[in-house]
Structure formats: structure tokens, C-alpha cells
Design a protein around this nucleic acid. Structure first.
Lengths: 248, 248
DNA sequence: CGGGGAGTTGAATGCAGTCAACAAATGTGG
DNA sequence: CCACATTTGTTGACTGCATTCAACTCCCCG
């Protein structure tokens, strides 16, 4: 991990601000909020950002790259809770019990903006809108968690895989508009760990989706030529999907 | 639904306050916070509190009874997201997109304290601690969602059912200490809808758990004589389980 | 007493897991 | 730049858990 505390890039010019916590604030409020940030950090793929059981002292806005959030299970498996994408707000915890319930690993090389959590206390007193911005971002995360839960509980593996791929594709696409494919730095085993499937079965589903011409996935990139067709397999309507992307 | 706006019981004396949103506040702060509440409402079992797609205008603290939160699926099934128990804070949503992503039905007769959401804006400006109280409660909910996700994704049905029953039992027990059984107003089909299993298979698992002497379930009540043994089947340690109960 | 919801049982089907081996891609050091 | 090691992806055969369908019982409530 490398940390940079000097000459931090300005939030005003930030390319991903509209999809991040500070995207919820008016530009004139950024002056008060930007002092929250203490550093910009980079992690290499595979590095831990934090561990399950840690006491949270810093929150992060993911600036670039993907982060995998997961819990370790008794039997040695791990359950991936979600993949964080640029704009995501991680590890904010202010309750009395600030022990983090999951771990986070950089799925690719990542850059983060870092916020010491204790600074939020005072800033929120001066800038109540920040509290609502945090609530808003949290609500989106919860909504995604609900979708994940719903998708995982529903039975056919093809549906689950299609839903996950489509969600990630749409979110990435909204960040890098115009590109014909999106970065996809995770493995089939990761997909399995996220959906409660074996990597072997994920592989078979990938092949089936590929055979149907719905996805192409190589060189750590994902192509989806026909979103509507994939949405049909994922058993979700496109408007419904978009509503998951709003807010952040 | 019946609504009572006069002579509301005092928050100071509330029996479930310690496990609710206001349990996060100091008693001297309750004076400022109590004006948030507009009414106490009762719903009969089966009544909707709100529907997926509604715009949220009121938040609720569940005072007594259980509420089922769920999403309707394309194929007519429904996915239960969680069962809300007394003390739970429901339907708070302040983001720009205030459309609720799930529906809520009273699982039993319930009593709720009702809070018009627009009142929060001003109160938080005067009482920043309220913002942290809300965050704290939200964090607990998210943590439970993570546990649910993890439990549902892990494979054997017996584990999932045991985990759900144990969680509900422990939470209810912490509310009604001393009792030898807890209210259990939901059906086996509800359990199935929560875990992504058929009611038939849930039934078989119930029988197996009963045969092992781990649970007893009749007259809308649940007995768990040996928490530790059930926790073993649920593949969770008791300390781990308790940590899910903290905060609210 | 009759009806409907909830729970129970059995048999047959099928989706996804397991095990084992191999192929392809990626990364590392000599 | 090649040789080797490791990770990731692919294939096949076999097993088993959970679903499906259908019938039946129990119990509560009007």
C-alpha cells in the first residue's frame, strides 16, 4: 500500500464524484466536506484493505479498480458479499460496536480516498446534509444487498450468474461510457463464491451463456452485446435494473 | 389499521427502547427526538404496512409483533428479505430516490410508532447524534443482511433453517427474557420463502431438527432447549451469534 | 359441522456438487 | 527468452440433495 497525503486532487474535478458519496452534496458544500479526506492510497491486487474483526477507523471512497468484500466461513470457504466498484463508499461504521463484519481485498490494483471516521462527527454537526448523503449511499447499498439476496435465493444457477454479470456490466458501463467492454478483474471462482456455486458449475454456466451469444469474457474484460437478452435470462427487466444503479 | 395520535406513551418508559433507534440516544436527548413521532398505529395480521414501489413518507419503529419484509418475483414467488422484530426501524429512506424496494406485511398483529420522514431533516440539524443513531441502526441491519446472504448461499438446507430459527429465537429471547419459549407467528412456507427452499423441504428439515430434540414448534411458539447444539447445526458459534444481536 | 390453511408423506425427476484429471493462461526466475 | 510453477479454466462420470407433483391429515375458525 502506498499513501499520498500531499497535493490531493480536487474533489470538484473528480471524474467519479457524481457516482460517489460527495455526488450527493452540492458543490458549495464540498468546501466543508473535503477536509474529511486525509489521503489517497493505492493497493495492489491481492492486498487486504481491512480484515474481518478490525475496528473501523477509516472509511474509503473507491476511486478506481474493484474491491472484493467477503466473510470467511468455518469450513474454509468464503462468502463474497459484493464487489465494490468505483464510487463505492466502504467501511463507514459509527455505531457503538465498530467491529467490521467482513474483510476487503483489492481485486485489481485500486486507488482510494481515505477518510478518518472520527472526523465525521464534527463535520455532520456543521453540515447536516452530509448525514443525508451517507444515508442515501447506505440505502443504495442495502438495496443492492436485497437484490443479491433475492437473486441468490432463487434457484437456477444460470439466472444468478446472468444477474450478477449484468449488474456489474451495467454499473461499470455507466462509469466508462462508450467503451465496448468493461474491466472484469475477477475469476470464475470469485463468481462462484459470490453466488454460492462451485467454480466448476459457474464454468458450465459461462459456457452456456457464451454459446447463446450473451456474453464474452476474456483478458479480464466482459462483453455484453445484447443487454436485453441477458436481462431476460437474469429474470429482471431493464428498467428494474437501472433503478438499482441510481443514487450512486 | 388503527391510528392513535393522542396521549402517546412516553418514550422514557418504553420497554423496548433499549433495542430500538432511541436506545442509541441519551435520555436527555429524547426530549428533542420524541417530537418526531406522530402516532402509534396498529395493524392486524396480514395487513400491508407499505408496498414495493411506494414513495416512503413515514418510518416506523416496531413496538410489538412481527413484520415480514419481502419482494415479489416475476414468477409469482416472493423472496422474504427479513422478519422485523420489536425494536426494528423500518422504511426510513432519505435519498433522492425514495421508492421503497420491498413490501411489508404484518406477520402477527403489530403496534408501531410512526415518524414522518420529513421531520428528520430539521431534527438532525439540531441533534446530530440522531444521525449517528440512525447510522448505527442501519449498520446492524446491513450486518444482518450480510449474515442472511451468507447463510442462504451456503448449501445444506438444515444449516440455513437452523441459522434462521436460532437467530429469531435469540433476538426474541433478548426481548422477553425468562420465558421458556418465544412467539413464532410465521409458517413453514414463510421460512421457505426466506431461505429459497420449498415449504415441503422446510417441513422435512423441521422434522429432522425436531427428531434431534433441537427445536419444538407449535401453537405459534418456538422452543429451543439447547442453543449450543442448534448453533452447531447452524454452523455458527454462540459468541458470533450474539455479536449479530448487539446495537439494537 | 364444514371449509380452508398449514402441515405431512411418498415417489420420481433433475440440477448442482464432488472427484479426478487435464489444458490453457499467466507469472517467475534463471 | 525460455523453462518451470502456479493459477485459472475445461471436461466427464457419478452422486445426492432439493424440487415437483399428488394425495392426504390435522387443526383452527366461522
Amino acid at each position: 500500500m502506498k499513501s499520498n497525503t500531499k497535493n490531493l486532487p480536487k474533489c470538484q474535478d473528480c471524474l467519479i464524484r457524481s457516482s460517489s458519496l460527495f455526488g450527493e452534496l452540492e458543490t458549495e458544500q464540498l468546501d466543508k466536506a473535503r477536509s474529511l479526506r486525509s489521503a489517497q492510497q493505492t493497493y495492489e491486487a491481492g492486498e487486504y484493505l481491512y480484515h474481518e474483526g478490525d475496528v473501523s477507523e477509516k472509511a474509503f471512497t473507491l476511486y478506481s479498480g474493484w474491491v472484493t468484500l467477503f466473510k470467511n466461513l468455518k469450513n474454509g470457504d468464503r462468502q463474497i458479499l459484493r464487489f465494490a466498484l468505483p464510487g463505492d463508499f466502504l467501511c463507514y461504521k459509527v455505531g457503538k460496536h465498530k467491529v467490521i463484519d467482513h474483510s476487503a481485498i483489492a481485486a485489481s490494483d485500486v486507488t482510494l480516498c481515505t477518510f478518518p471516521i472520527d472526523r465525521f462527527k464534527q463535520t455532520i454537526a456543521e453540515l447536516p446534509d452530509l448525514a443525508f448523503a451517507i444515508s442515501s449511499v447506505t440505502e443504495t447499498t442495502t438495496q443492492r444487498c436485497h437484490s443479491a439476496l433475492t437473486s441468490i435465493a432463487s434457484h437456477p444457477a444460470e439466472t444468478k450468474v446472468a444477474f450478477l454479470l449484468l449488474s456489474l456490466y451495467v454499473r461499470e458501463m455507466s462509469l466508462s461510457k462508450g467503451a465496448e467492454c468493461v474491466p472484469f478483474p475477477i475469476t470464475q471462482e470469485d463468481v462462484g463464491d459470490a453466488l454460492g456455486l462451485t467454480s466448476i458449475h459457474v464454468n458450465r454456466v459461462f459456457q452456456s451463456l457464451r454459446a447463446q451469444g450473451l456474453i464474452e469474457c476474456k483478458n479480464r474484460c466482459l462483453w455484453v452485446s445484447n443487454k436485453k437478452a441477458l436481462a431476460k435470462v437474469a429474470k429482471i427487466s431493464l428498467p428494474e435494473l437501472e433503478s438499482l444503479m441510481v443514487g450512486i
